[in-house]
Design a binder for these strands. Structure first.
Ligand SMILES: [Zn+2]
Ligand SMILES: [Zn+2]
Ligand SMILES: [Zn+2]
Ligand SMILES: [Zn+2]
Lengths: 137, 137
DNA sequence: ACGCATCTGTTATACAATAACATCGATTGC
DNA sequence: GCAATCGATGTTATTGTATAACAGATGCGT
């Protein structure tokens, strides 16, 4: 049971987390809602509250440019760390990458600007390898 | 007249662009709408259509994590270039920074993943210099 | 004039997120 | 046991963000 892996996920938190891990791709809150109606989830708030906690636990990331959420695919991912997401504009595939160099560069840039950096959103748009070879576009 | 500066902005495009340049901060589409009702703008689509064009022209940037828009403060900013935005979570101040090193690092990371990079969203959250010195938090 | 593209105006709708309030259940302290 | 408390839940209503669909207007090249 997944809750034992992460301490104490509540029923709704686990439903939402399982929906995201099963999805193999980003899901909007309302897509999650639709997928869980048969499990007793009936209102957006039930999903958003669970997502808030999962984000807090670092089990889930929010993709700002898609208004969607993904399960963290980087088991050791410290939420404090800066993650980089690639988003394929053709097939929708999302990859989560960790890169210490970029995190450091962003910190340096923030320092130059005397900006106290708390969190960073880095989302790359383009075409994944499969979609490049599949077409000449 | 601003339209002469940028070729051929239409009336609505110029209204929206002027609203953003006057604002000295990010505005949501509906905030723009409210500010332009007296100028004949009555529906969200009028704003969104103008914003789409301004984004295409590179005159405006979208802040994904705020669902808001800012006029480009970087006159020579090539829209192809990767821009970095700092967003103060206390006062809302937004700064637009250009950093070739980060753009290069992101390109390298994309290359490693065989990802054809088209555009990058980089948004840093934290506290601006003024808000740091103003409080101990 | 005609075809075509672009911009425009309007209504209605879909999608995303939060507010407000009542309830339930487990835990703590007496 | 029992009140107090805290976190999670359920529900309704509302706000905020963005697009669909359709019609009309404008400009331009032929
Ligand atoms: Zn992660
Ligand atoms: Zn792809
Ligand atoms: Zn710019
Ligand atoms: Zn500030």
């Amino acid at each position: 049971m997944r809750s034992s892996e992460h301490g104490a996920l509540t029923k709704n938190q686990e439903l939402v987390y399982d929906a995201l891990t099963d999805a193999k791709g980003p899901l909007s809150a309302y897509a999650i809602l639709d997928g869980l109606r048969e499990h007793g989830i009936r209102a957006p708030l039930q999903v958003y509250r669970a997502l808030d906690k999962l984000l807090e636990f670092g089990l889930v990331h929010r993709l700002e440019s898609l208004n969607s959420f993904v399960a963290c695919s980087h088991p050791e991912c410290d939420s404090r760390e800066t993650m980089v997401f690639t988003i394929c504009e053709k097939c929708g595939k999302v990859s989560e990458l960790a890169d210490k160099a970029i995190a450091g560069q962003l910190q340096s840039l923030a320092d130059l600007d005397h900006f106290a950096l708390k969190a960073a959103t880095v989302e790359l748009r383009g075409f994944c390898q499969a979609c490049q070879t599949a077409s000449t576009q």
